[in-house]
Write a protein that binds this DNA or RNA. Structure first.
Lengths: 338, 338
DNA sequence: GCCTGGCACTCTGCGCGTGCGAGTGCCAGC
DNA sequence: GCTGGCACTCGCACGCGCAGAGTGCCAGGC
């Protein structure tokens, strides 16, 4: 177990390194933080911290920089979440309130997060799986062709064209629409399958095939996880990465373009609060020198999607976590209102 | 007027520079291209080309590189468009045909373009203004709240929630829906305003306010140009930019995030064919060292949106133009089919 | 008049050695 | 267990010299 002072030293190292982006030495540490001990003592502590794997030196006779393990300890034990100031909170709220539709909410959120954290922001569109159905609309495009439009409580709209096995009259269509909506409106997606199971039985024999087809398309749409979309912004912030970044930035950009990777990344974070994944904790290779700070957000108490930022492991964790948390909270509010 | 040989020299310089990314000298030129003259002669030609502003030397006693003006001449007079090979064309078609909906078409197109050209791809969503209405749906969310869903022939769906000045019965709603669709279905957006102008008059006095509100929301949605959206991909290709790119890449990433800038950029290109904007021809500062190759695409003969790529001025223009043109063509086909 | 070979000149990039400074580890003393 | 001192280690910036590529210009030839 590390002594209290050694933890303080680690905290100081992280803070200084995040600020200066340069390896920090014992002398500078004692000058900038009132630790109450001499550089020599700090050196001993640093040696101990290095033995434990919390810090490392890039070269012999250079200062120390935190390792992933060091950041992990810092995030878990040494630093809190820095709350946003009142003006900041007001600005967030004002900015998000100007949004006109769901796309706009997401777009604004991305912008906001990128600006606040000066990092790459990632916002997942509110997911279907945890939402409820607001309305299902059926439109006849041709005698044997129906368009299915699903509207969710988060304002998202999905549409599918269904080719029916047999012609389907307007009357039957209206009937199906009415029955369908009376059963599934305001119900959770997960409940829908059992709710519509016996619906074909209520129809004439010749229409049953069509009804089944429409229903299965609806169910497909509901579970279609891969329809989950992301919006990304602030990639220009990657250029602040470091001096060596031709090598660093490329895999990150590549990873960011792989939406699958990002979705998996966000999906893995199951914490109810803000989740931080540091460096090699990220499964994807390209993100080995980045940290991902994410959190769920949603209109009710429950999270329907995730948002977060991707930045260098050397980032201001308390500030970033605060910004991410605050933005998630306000986006949730906006979604609940609309 | 430049002699034929000097034009050949310019062409050779552009080709070599694009290939090697290094300033090209007279000796290398004569070795790699059979110009039939000696390096000394080429040097004279180069001096002339430099006087005219087509090429420049980064430093005294270095090779020459083309200027924006040089690239312009190259694109306009010296190079054609390199057509895709048959296998390439087949690959494009196959890849695009797998798309399931409009989002997917756009997403695949971006990917494809980025891969083919190894540059940043930009695809504008098919625009509303030139499309036709497939269907307008009205849903009652609450007594005085209606959701308006607009479905276009390109498969795009827009929805708006309308707060009505007075409660609006289901019967009136159905009436409005029927009348509205019989008038505007399959009509072009631009024709819609005059087609619905007198619609409120057909309704009871107490409903007219609501009808007007719904109609004006519909019209707003139709003209809402700023709803034009883009998808961007292949930003990782920016890392191939050059050695000095911390300075180069940043403004480009920033410009790419400003969708407004990009939309304007694409909008400016009014050519029926492939448009190339080179370096300083781009109004936006951040894009002064990039070229934009764009073209319109659409389901019919007419263009409904643009797509293109952004890359360094030092790019393979014939190949890029060929790829952009081919992709646009096939996307148009896919859109026409669906 | 235009092309050519030759020649002197210029400039960049690279490898190398050096000196400086920051930072460390260790040790003896308090 | 903390402190001050000291010798040591590196990385980095700087300056130098050299090689190589490329140019401009000139005199001669077709």
């Amino acid at each position: 177990m590390l002594s209290e002072r050694r933890l303080q030293v680690l905290r100081a190292i992280v803070q200084d390194y995040v600020g200066t982006e340069e390896p920090v030495g014992s002398k500078a540490l004692t000058e900038r933080h009132s630790l109450g001990v001499s550089p020599a003592t700090v050196r001993n502590d640093m040696a101990a911290l290095e033995d434990e794997g919390y810090i490392a030196q890039p070269h012999t006779s250079a200062g120390r920089i935190p390792t992933d393990k060091g950041y992990r300890l810092f995030v878990d034990k040494l630093a809190g979440v820095k709350p946003m100031t009142a003006p900041e909170r007001r600005a967030i709220q004002n900015f998000l309130e100007g949004a006109v539709d769901l796309d706009d909410v997401v777009a604004r959120t991305v912008r906001l997060l990128a600006q606040l954290t000066r990092q790459v922001a990632v916002v997942q569109y509110p997911s279907l799986t945890r939402s409820t159905v607001r309305h299902v609309e059926l439109l006849s495009l041709a005698p044997a062709r129906v368009m299915l439009v699903l509207i969710t409580d988060t304002g998202r709209v999905e549409q599918r064209v269904v080719d029916c096995p047999a012609p389907f009259g307007e009357a039957s269509l209206a009937d199906l629409r009415a029955r369908l909506n009376s059963r599934v409106a305001n119900r959770r997606f997960t409940d829908v399958p059992s709710l519509v199971e016996d619906l074909p039985e209520a129809f004439e024999h010749e229409d049953r095939g069509t009804v089944s087809t429409v229903l299965s398309t609806l169910l497909e749409t509901l579970v279609e996880e891969n329809e989950e979309r992301l919006m990304i912004g602030g990639t220009a912030n990657l250029t602040r990465f470091g001096h060596d970044f031709p090598l660093t930035i490329r895999p990150v950009l590549e990873a960011l373009e792989e939406q699958v990777v990002l979705l998996k990344l966000l999906g893995e974070a199951q914490d109810p609060g803000v989740t931080v994944r540091i460096g090699h904790e990220n499964a994807h290779e390209g993100l080995n020198s980045t940290s991902v700070v994410s959190v769920g957000y949603g209109s009710g108490g429950e999270a329907v999607a995730k948002l977060g930022v991707v930045g260098p492991t050397r980032m201001d964790y308390p500030g970033t976590m605060g910004a991410v948390r605050a933005v998630a909270r306000y986006v949730g509010q906006i979604l609940a209102e609309s």
